[in-house]
Measured scan of single mutants.
Amino acid sequence: HNLTITQGKLFFHYNPKLCLSEIHKMEEVSGTKGRQERNDIALKTNGDQASCENELLKFSYIRTSFDKILLRWEPYWPPDFRDLLGFMLFYKEAPYQNVTEFDGQDACGSNSWTVVDIDPPLRSNDPKSQNHPGWLMRGLKPWTQYAIFVKTLVTFSDERRTYGAKSDIIYVQTDATNPSVPLDPISVSNSSSQIILKWKPPSDPNGNITHYLVFWERQAEDSELFELDYCLKGLKLPSRTWSPPFESEDSQKHNQSEYEDSAGECCSCPKTDSQILKELEESSFRKTFEDYLHNVVFVPRKTSSGTGAEDPRPSRKRRSLGDVGNVTVAVPTVAAFPNTSSTSVPTSPEEHRPFEKVVNKESLVISGLRHFTGYRIELQACNQDTPEERCSVAAYVSARTMPEAKADDIVGPVTHEIFENNVVHLMWQEPKEPNGLIVLYEVSYRRYGDEELHLCVSRKHFALERGCRLRGLSPGNYSVRIRATSLAGNGSWTEPTYFYVTDYLDVPSNIA
Rank of each mutant, 00 (worst) to 15 (best):
D204Q: 07
N208H: 10
N208P: 13
I209P: 15
T210H: 04
H211D: 01
H211M: 01
F215K: 10
F215R: 07
F215N: 03
W216D: 02
A220I: 11
A220T: 15
D222M: 09
F226L: 07
E227Y: 06
L228R: 10
D229I: 03
Y230W: 08
C231N: 04
L232M: 13
L232K: 13
G234F: 09
L235N: 08
K236G: 09
K236Q: 05
P238M: 05
S239A: 09
W242R: 07
P244C: 15
P244A: 14
P245Q: 13
E247F: 15
E247M: 09
S248W: 03
E249I: 09
D250F: 06
Q252T: 11
H254S: 15
N255K: 02
N255E: 07
N255G: 05
Q256I: 12
Q256K: 11
S257C: 05
E260R: 08
D261R: 00
G264A: 15
C266M: 10
C267Q: 04
C269Y: 05
K271F: 05
T272Q: 04
T272Y: 04
T272N: 08
D273Q: 15
D273T: 03
Q275W: 08
I276M: 04
I276L: 06
I276H: 07
I276W: 05
L277R: 11
L277D: 03
L277Y: 01
S283N: 08
S283D: 05
R286A: 05
K287N: 01
E290D: 04
D291V: 02
D291E: 03
L293Q: 01
H294L: 02
H294T: 02
V296H: 09
V296G: 05
V297I: 06
V297W: 01
F298R: 05
P300A: 09
P300V: 05
K302H: 09
S305I: 11
G306Y: 07
T307D: 10
G308P: 15
A309Y: 11
D311F: 14
P312N: 09
R316Q: 09
K317E: 11
R318A: 13
R319W: 09
G322C: 10
G322E: 08
N326Q: 15
V327K: 15
V329Q: 03
P332C: 07
P332W: 08
A335L: 13
A335K: 10
P338H: 10
P338W: 09
N339I: 12
N339S: 13
N339A: 11
T340I: 13
S342M: 09
S342E: 09
S344D: 10
S344Q: 13
T347Y: 10
S348P: 12
S348L: 12
P349D: 09
R353A: 10
P354D: 15
P354F: 10
E356S: 15
V358G: 11
V358Q: 15
V359D: 00
V359Y: 11
V365E: 04
I366L: 11
I366F: 15
I366P: 00
S367M: 04
S367W: 12
S367I: 09
G368L: 05
L369T: 08
R370Q: 15
H371D: 08
H371A: 13
F372I: 02
F372A: 07
G374R: 14
G374F: 13
Y375S: 01
R376S: 03
I377E: 00
I377Q: 01
E378P: 00
E378K: 11
Q380P: 00
Q380D: 05
A381R: 03
D385A: 13
D385T: 02
D385P: 12
P387A: 14
E388C: 15
R390K: 01
R390Q: 13
S392N: 04
V393Q: 01
S398W: 11
A399K: 15
A399P: 06
R400A: 11
R400P: 01
P403F: 03
E404K: 15
E404H: 12
A405D: 12
D408R: 04
D408P: 01
G412R: 11
G412I: 04
P413T: 03
H416P: 14
E417F: 12
I418A: 08
E420A: 05
N422A: 14
V423K: 04
M427A: 12
E430R: 01
P431W: 02
E433T: 15
P434K: 06
N435A: 05
N435C: 12
I438L: 09
I438D: 02
L440R: 10
L440P: 01
E442C: 11
V443E: 00
R447G: 03
Y448G: 00
G449N: 08
E452A: 13
E452F: 13
L453P: 03
H454D: 12
H454Q: 04
L455P: 03
C456R: 06
V457W: 04
S458N: 08
H461F: 11
A463Q: 08
A463N: 13
L464G: 10
E465T: 12
R466A: 08
L470R: 01
R471E: 15
L473H: 01
S474G: 05
P475F: 06
G476T: 01
V480W: 04
V480K: 04
V480L: 07
V480I: 15
R481Q: 01
R481G: 04
I482R: 01
R483N: 12
R483D: 00
R483Q: 06
S486E: 01
S486C: 04
S486N: 01
L487T: 05
L487N: 08
G489L: 03
G491L: 00
S492L: 14
W493H: 04
T497C: 15
Y498W: 10
F499E: 09
Y504N: 06
V507L: 00
N510I: 11
